[in-house]
């Protein structure tokens, strides 16, 4: 579960959806209604957040410094200060929706059938994001002199870096994170997609998504940890799973940042549609 969570958390394929579907398909004796299930998942998320903190440790130092400098000065002067404020603006809608809606939505939809269905929806969303992005690329290429033969990396360079996203777009991308409360909808998928719609390069959309996810995952994780210790669960095993989750997340993030230099969301979209349909069929046949 730790490896599965860590690997699927940052890939745009919905870790929660996989965490709900896979144990059901493999008949693991893992009760999703168990009170320790959510804290366990949160502990795995904590492993992921730690991996992201390690991956972006230098950037986080600059971002935190930039936040305090800009906050006290009352003015943004550098890219890192702007990024810090963008992350604050992007985190607020997700935090509000998370606190007030997360448990209600998750309890309503915590069924493998629903998760498989939403996985198909997630795939369609990924393909939709890329469809709109391709249209934007054609417009960008036309306006920049019709360089229709340019390569993927050159095409990507027509788009912006994370620091240049507007505050309104950052808030919208942040709010998109709330869609991930539906098991099967990927947090990184919708935020990367949102970033693409806001005009970011794929790699920058992924970076912004990972940076945006870190405080929310970390905050939720820290707040849930006391529940884990009070419910009499095997903490040692859970912590080991969290470490595995962190290792898988670190490797995933490195891979994805490299992949998105020229790669697109399409393969993940097709994977989600296929995985969702196959899961629905297997669950329906009760295999």
């Amino acid at each position: 579960m730790g490896l599965l969570q860590g690997a699927s958390e940052l890939f745009p394929v919905s870790s929660l959806g996989h965490a709900v579907i896979v144990p059901s398909l493999l008949h693991w004796s893992f009760k999703q209604s168990d009170p320790s299930f959510v804290p366990f998942l949160v502990l795995l998320h904590l492993g992921t957040a730690t991996a992201l903190l390690i991956l972006y440790r230098d950037q986080w130092v600059v971002i935190i410094r930039g936040f305090f400098t800009a906050a006290f000065r009352g003015q943004i002067k550098t890219d890192s200060e702007r990024l810090a404020m963008l992350l604050l603006v992007g985190t607020i809608p997700a935090a509000i929706l998370g606190v007030f809606l997360e448990s209600r939505i998750k309890s309503l939809f915590a069924s493998p059938y629903v998760a498989a269905g939403f996985l198909v929806v997630n795939g369609a969303l990924m393909l939709g994001f890329e469809f709109m992005r391709r249209r934007a690329e054609r417009v960008a290429l036309t306006t920049s002199g019709g360089l229709t033969t340019s390569g993927r990396i050159e095409t990507e360079e027509q788009f912006a870096q994370a620091e240049r996203i507007s505050f309104k777009a950052a808030a919208l991308v942040g709010a998109c994170q709330a869609l991930a409360f539906f098991p099967g909808i990927s947090r990184s998928g919708v935020t990367i997609g949102g970033g693409l719609l806001a005009g970011l390069r794929h790699q920058e959309a992924a970076r912004f998504s990972f940076l945006l996810a870190t405080p929310v995952i970390l905050g939720a994780g820290i707040l849930e940890v006391p529940q884990l210790f009070s419910s009499g669960v095997p903490v040692g095993e859970y912590v080991a799973a969290a470490v595995l989750s962190g290792i898988a997340a670190y490797a995933s993030a490195r891979f994805l940042l490299r992949y998105f230099r020229s790669g697109r969301l399409d393969p993940y979209g097709w994977y989600c549609i296929a995985a969702g349909l196959v899961s629905l069929a297997l669950l329906g046949l009760n295999l």
Binding site: A71, M85, T91, V99, L223
Partner: peptide
């Protein structure tokens, strides 16, 4: 959790 959220909102408002 609610308290932390409102602290974050307070910080954002003051900034």
């Amino acid at each position: 959790k609610h308290a932390v959220l409102f602290v974050v909102l307070a910080v954002a408002s003051l900034v």
